[in-house]
Amino acid sequence: MENEPIILLEHVTVTYQDLVALEDVSLSVPPGAFLAIIGPNGAGKTTLLKTILGLLRPVRGTVRVFGKAPWELDGRRQRIGYVPQVMSVDLNFPVRAGEVVLMGRYGRIGLFRRPSAADRQAALRAMERVGIADLADRPIARLSGGQRQRVFLARALANEPDLLLLDEPTTGVDVAATESLYELLRGLHDEGITILVVSHDVGVVAAYVDMVACVNRRLVAHGRPDEVGGNVLSCMYGPEAMLFGHGPVSHMVVVPSGSSESPQVSPPESR
């Protein structure tokens, strides 16, 4: 029972508005894992998260979260903490950070009931854990990108989840805030929370996680960060991607396979 995977996907195909977003993906996430799902934009990473959350249903294959189909989780739903992309909400919405964090418990509280002292304490603990307790009364419109991201993380933690899913948590966040967020996730992982983070930022993620799964509609590679290595590049940019030195920083040049178009130059990698 203990070693049963928390998330299990078997030959999962998901279509989204008539397009195949994920094809024949099989993935098993054991308890205590810290897994990054990486891939280029539009590769189906968010679709994969939404499938695990039960927001999308596969057309083929099976999905199990805590041993059940995600849309049949009921009470166990609260064991999943989800941190969506920040841009998925209206950032000028008139609501304070503390209220947003408390929302994480609304499902657990149930309809018609008001939050109890215990609920408020759980929200406060979550805010303390991520270091934003002093921002509780601040409207979300007046938070920096990094602070807002922590509010969303605290909202997920307010439920005291066993599994944490994060979708591009560092979009629009500067380098220092990105690193401190991953430090924080590392700490949460050490406390026993299973973490799955979706990112297109290969460089940063690899330094913190135990496992990398590379998705580009299909699952291209899966393993420890150092094992996946070169496969990651081909996952991100196609089979003919390569690194070579060019001036003071190394550039990556991608030649799309089977086309005679001029090479696309991606932003320089700072390593």
Binding site: Y82, D90, V100, M103, Y106, F112
Partner: peptide
């Protein structure tokens, strides 16, 4: 009045509401 917190939640972030069982 009875569904104040839920209506706030689905107005702010319907997807998260769905995910947490609202």
């Amino acid at each position: 009045g009875l569904l104040f917190k839920e209506l706030l939640f689905i107005t702010f972030d319907p997807e998260m509401a769905e995910v947490t069982g609202v």
